[in-house]
């Protein structure tokens, strides 16, 4: 029933602003750390090991919280907003780079806009208000809930997006052979599935116990990137 909704939300063409974010790849390319397919492979493994567990776990935890609200009419609004706020603050504390906090919130805001229009729901209004928008994983978790997806599907979309964003940017920035890039993504599919499953498995934990993997260069190069006069991608 909702398989098409799952594919819609996972699709890179879903208009949620992702096309303008390289998730650090533009900075890595400029620094000469990624120049070819092998470099991209290393980069994506790093993103999958470090960024994806956090993103997917917060997406899954938000989804679970939202889905529980939806299925339990007796739950009051504060039952859900407290976990959402707690998820927001815990993710904020895991995102040490101001540039990455802004990138996450901007992408969250864009996703929220797309989600509200695609799968209208009252859930969106329960996300904590912030002038730059909600963090992307929170927006994704709520959108996935509004679309009727499962926690596992929400986590899978999150982990998949961590890979496909920079992969797509690499095709544009480095002119890599798109077939080879797709082949690389296909080879990483098993690892991606494992990360997603692990994230869904911790979704019930308290927000402070969720993964907090840090990748120093992700933070450092995001800040360097934000100082550039001329850049093609927002992050």
């Amino acid at each position: 029933m909702h398989r098409t909704a799952y594919l819609l939300l996972a699709d890179g063409r879903f208009p949620s602003g992702g096309h303008a974010h390289s998730s650090g790849l533009e900075a890595a390319v400029a620094a000469g750390r990624v120049t070819d397919l092998a470099g991209l492979e290393q980069f994506l493994h790093g993103r999958l090991s470090y960024a994806a567990p956090v993103t997917a776990a917060f997406t899954a935890a938000t989804h679970l919280s939202a889905a529980r609200t939806g299925s339990a009419p007796s739950a009051t609004e504060s039952d859900v907003t407290v976990p959402f706020l707690s998820l927001d603050r815990e993710l904020e504390a895991r995102t040490v780079s101001p540039a990455l906090r802004l990138a996450s919130r901007r992408q969250g805001r864009a996703l929220l806009r797309a989600g509200r229009n695609t799968w209208p729901s009252e859930l969106y209004g329960q996300l904590p208000k912030h002038p730059d928008g909600p963090h992307q994983p929170l927006a994704l978790g709520v959108t996935a809930a509004a679309a009727g997806l499962s926690t596992e599907e929400a986590a899978q979309i999150a982990a998949y997006g961590v890979l496909t964003g920079p992969a797509s940017a690499a095709v544009r920035l480095l002119g890599l052979d798109p077939y080879q890039v797709q082949n690389l993504l296909a080879r990483m599919a098993g690892a991606c599935d494992e990360i997603a499953a692990a994230a869904a498995a911790v979704a019930h934990k308290s927000p402070q116990e969720l993964p907090a993997h840090a990748a120093p260069l992700a933070d450092i190069s995001a800040e360097l990137h934000a100082t550039w006069e001329v850049r093609l991608f927002a992050s």
């Binding site: 750390r33 470099g39 290393q42 980069f43 790093g46 993103r47 090991s49 990748a215 120093p216």
Partner: peptide
């Protein structure tokens, strides 16, 4: 939480 070492794919690569 910073993880390094051979048990984590990509740990010394360009993203980390």
């Amino acid at each position: 939480s910073l993880t390094i070492g051979p048990g984590t794919p990509g740990w010394d690569g360009p993203a980390v």
